[in-house]
């Protein structure tokens, strides 16, 4: 993990606002700058970097550092999506069990580094193109049946989830993803994303559809990169494969 963030999102916004306010105020004062300027800079740095040595020294953590607290009850975004793939559970499990394969089919996962043992480092995208990183531990691996995971303290995202692989009575494998997460902006950013047609459930569904194509057809259908005439003003939104 590059940067150990230990300041909450809203706290960071507030820090930047207060820091900037202090600097503007200091610029208008004749005296007292010796205190206000360093304090303003301190607040700005703390807000922009997301790291606060005082929080670190006092052991103060953000809400997302405790997965159980961040995702308990009605908190966090919940996703339940499934797909049937015409391949045996062992094939589907094998592809998923190497977590570095996930970016091949999950639209909002950019990279998964397997760090050894059960530790993994994830790089993803939130609605609006926000870049997020988190570490997670695989909690359970039952060959051909189940994989579950949970994020670690200090991550941008608190997440816990599982993927189940069940035989679909001679029709291949039923794959079910059960996922919870809390990311910057939380439910508000999820609601805003829905307004433009993006939803975490939809993206997970899309990811499972691509996994199905990858396993059944050996490739994921796409039209990205094919020719077209002048696009003009009648463009489709950028998130349509066009």
């Amino acid at each position: 993990m590059g940067l150990h963030r230990n300041v909450g999102d809203w706290e960071r916004v507030a820090s930047v606002a207060i820091g900037a306010g202090l600097l503007v105020w200091a610029a208008r004062q004749r005296s007292g700058r010796a205190t206000t300027v360093p304090l303003g800079l301190w607040m700005l740095t703390r807000g922009v970097s997301g790291y606060c040595p005082v929080n670190h020294a006092t052991g103060r953590e953000r809400a997302r550092d405790n997965t159980r607290r961040a995702l308990g009850g009605a908190r966090g975004v919940k996703i339940l999506e499934s797909v049937t793939i015409d391949r045996p559970p062992s094939d589907v499990y094998a592809l998923w069990n190497d977590l570095s394969n996930l970016p091949r089919f999950m639209p909002n996962i950019e990279r998964v580094d397997v760090l050894g043992g059960n530790r993994t480092h994830w790089v993803g995208r939130a609605p609006g193109g926000i870049h997020l990183e988190w570490d997670a531990d695989v909690l359970q691996r039952i060959p051909d049946e189940l994989i579950s995971w949970r994020s670690l303290p200090g991550s941008d995202v608190a997440t816990a989830g599982s993927v189940r692989f069940e035989s679909a009575n001679g029709h291949g494998t039923r794959v079910t993803v059960n996922l919870q997460y809390d990311a910057p902006g939380g439910k508000i950013s999820t609601a805003l994303a829905k307004l433009v047609g993006q939803s975490p459930s939809g993206e997970t569904h899309e990811g499972l559809r691509r996994l199905k194509s990858l396993l059944e057809a050996g490739e994921i259908p796409t039209v990205t990169g094919q020719p077209h005439g002048k696009r003009g003003t009648l463009k489709l939104p950028e998130w349509v494969d066009a």
Partner: peptide, 26 residues
């Protein structure tokens, strides 16, 4: 456009292929 390998294609229902529409969600 049919992948030839999904359950629909294997049943000869090529026009119902599961794996050829990148914008199936629309």
């Amino acid at each position: 456009i049919a992948c030839g390998r999904c359950e629909s294609c294997q049943n000869g229902q090529w026009s119902l292929c599961d794996n050829s529409n990148p914008n199936a969600w629309i």
